[in-house]
């Protein structure tokens, strides 16, 4: 089967700190990584290939430096990597991004399955998976925590919900997004790293795609960010120290004084 994994390069927020004075992100020394959720998508694709055969193609849209993340994906076991890169793509919101990625996937011919992480940790929207599905004209399922069965025509999977989960069967081709629970991503092997070093990352621009230029980048984006601000810095709260019993009773009476109802257990 032909599996496409869409990845996004994001700033590594595990190293992000907040400047306590300005309450802004400290960007110095922050590296770019593959969006953590996309690592689960890539791992799942590689596992499916190992079990059922086929190929894994990794695709990303972004500036030229995204090539390093695509090489990382090759090191982990992807067979091929394609970067959609063009100044015309810059400034894309989720609608324009979905359209562009779908054009890239269409150019590959006959992908059976497209996998992505449930959202990217910088934008946190989760909108590109369903958007790509719509542009490809195929169904999608979000928040998958387990793939149970894969045949030539369909797959059975478990989708995480607020209050439990649902088992769904979806026909191919389809787009899915995955949550962290689905697997534990592997580390790159030495052989993989060697392969990545010599791998060529294909770069596709608007000229390589069957695409309407009016729907790309900033031009193709209906949404517009008009203001960015840091949320108000939390005021330090009240801190209790001392004997356990006193701290707890003081806390409970403070809560009550502030009109917070602490629910009593039904047994009392």
């Amino acid at each position: 089967m032909k599996i496409v994994v869409c990845i996004k390069q994001v700033p590594d927020t595990t190293n992000v700190r907040i400047n306590p004075e300005t309450n802004t992100l400290i960007r110095e020394g922050v590296e770019s990584i593959i969006n953590p959720f996309d690592m689960y998508a890539l791992e799942e694709a590689i596992r499916l290939k190992e079990k059922h055969g086929g190929e894994v193609i990794v695709m990303s849209m972004g500036p030229p430096q995204v090539e390093s993340s695509l090489k990382d994906a090759i090191a982990l076991g992807a067979d091929q990597a394609i970067l959609l890169t063009d100044r015309a793509f810059a400034g894309a919101d989720t609608l324009a991004t979905s359209y562009t990625l779908a054009a890239g996937i269409n150019a590959l011919n006959d992908a059976d399955l497209v996998i992505m992480g449930k959202q990217a940790i910088d934008g946190d929207t989760g909108q590109v998976g369903p958007g790509v599905a719509e542009n490809l004209g195929v169904p999608h399922i979000t928040d998958i925590r387990k793939i149970e069965e894969v045949t030539d025509n369909y797959m059975v999977c478990e989708r995480l919900l607020e209050e439990g989960y649902v088992r769904l069967k979806v026909k191919f081709p389809a787009v899915i997004t995955v949550v962290k629970e689905i697997n534990e991503p592997r580390l790159p092997s030495l052989k993989g790293k060697m392969k990545a070093k010599s791998a060529t990352i294909l770069q596709w621009t608007t000229k390589d795609l069957d695409i309407d230029v009016d729907r790309l980048g900033l031009t193709g984006s209906p949404t517009q960010v008009v203001r960015i601000f840091t949320p108000p810095k939390p005021e330090g709260g009240k801190v209790y120290k001392g004997e356990t019993r006193d701290m707890v009773s003081e806390l409970l009476s403070d809560l009550q004084a502030n009109g917070v109802a602490i629910k009593k257990s039904k047994g009392n």
Binding site: V16, I121, I228, P231
Partner: peptide, 11 residues
């Protein structure tokens, strides 16, 4: 966005 570290107003 950015894990709640910044807020954005969008039109």
């Amino acid at each position: 966005a950015f894990g709640g570290n910044i807020m954005a107003t969008i039109l």
